[in-house]
């Protein structure tokens, strides 16, 4: 599964590059518009270490951001599962925050927290938590009647048990959403870095843009893509292992 993700990404990326080169040679465009293969190779050799470290930095922020957002989504989802006034209040607040474009909120975040690690983390978490929240809310507000009935009528139901039952029954859905949200966490971190941080691959992309250097951008895209493919593959594998662990010990 993991190797498949990687070579699928490579196929997509190479196809994209091939289209670019085709356009370049078909229309006789200069290296300034679309870099030549040699250009690309030289740039890759020159920046791969530096960009690799940047991508690693971005990925680490994205991973932490994802963990934070999973917690956040679980918390909001658990609080918001109740059909009480407070439950609906939590839901409305969570939806509203998501309705604001992150580029509009980002300046406030950067003014409050500076342009360091925390701001990147917060923005990454904000971007990737919503899909998780939606599925957690969906899962948590949907009773599993045929399991919960006994505990309810015998007075044994506690909120922890309710959450445990609903999460366990929807484990597959949850792991799918979580591995899917990795992409969003990564994209969120890059956006944050692009807007205002001073580290990470998003920041490097911004500099490359200042210098109109498309080959650097292509190298960055390649590194981001391959890293994301590996990370997501690992998450999926982990999700399957959790699933298997459950069935094996059954």
């Amino acid at each position: 599964m993991l190797p498949r993700r990687i070579y699928q990404f490579l196929i997509i990326f190479l196809l994209g590059i091939a289209v670019l080169f085709a356009v370049k040679y078909l229309f006789g465009l200069s290296d300034y518009v679309i870099p030549s293969p040699a250009d690309l190779r030289d740039t890759l050799a020159a920046v791969y270490k530096h960009y690799g470290a940047d991508v690693a930095s971005t990925l680490s922020v994205a991973i932490i951001g994802q963990v934070v957002s999973i917690f956040l989504a679980l918390m909001v989802g658990i609080l918001g599962r109740q059909t009480t006034w407070f439950g609906s209040f939590i839901k409305v607040a969570a939806y509203n925050v998501q309705a604001y474009p992150i580029v509009a909120i980002a300046p406030i975040i950067f003014i409050l927290f500076g342009d360091g690690f925390f701001s990147r983390l917060l923005i990454a978490a904000m971007i990737c938590y919503f899909p998780i929240l939606l599925s957690v809310l969906g899962i948590m507000s949907e009773p599993v009647k045929e399991i919960e009935h006994f505990y309810r009528v015998t007075g044994r139901m506690r909120w922890q048990l309710e959450v445990k039952i609903r999460a366990f029954e929807n484990l597959n859905k949850l792991t799918t959403v979580i591995s899917g949200s990795a992409t969003l966490a990564m994209a969120g971190t890059i956006v944050a870095e692009f807007i205002a941080a001073n580290a990470g691959i998003g920041y490097s992309i911004r500099i490359a843009l200042y210098q109109s250097d498309l080959s650097k951008i292509l190298v960055a895209l390649f590194l981001i893509g391959i890293t994301l493919a590996v990370y997501q593959g690992l998450l999926e594998a982990a999700g399957r292992m959790i699933g298997k662990g459950v069935t094996v010990t059954r």
């Binding site: 465009l29 200069s30 300034y32």
Partner: peptide, 24 residues
Amino acid sequence: ELGYADFGVASADQVIRALSKGSP
């Protein structure tokens, strides 16, 4: 170069970078 514009405004560093990459 792509034909989206006939004239444009660019800074000198952009021009020099473009020249170094063979842009006409």
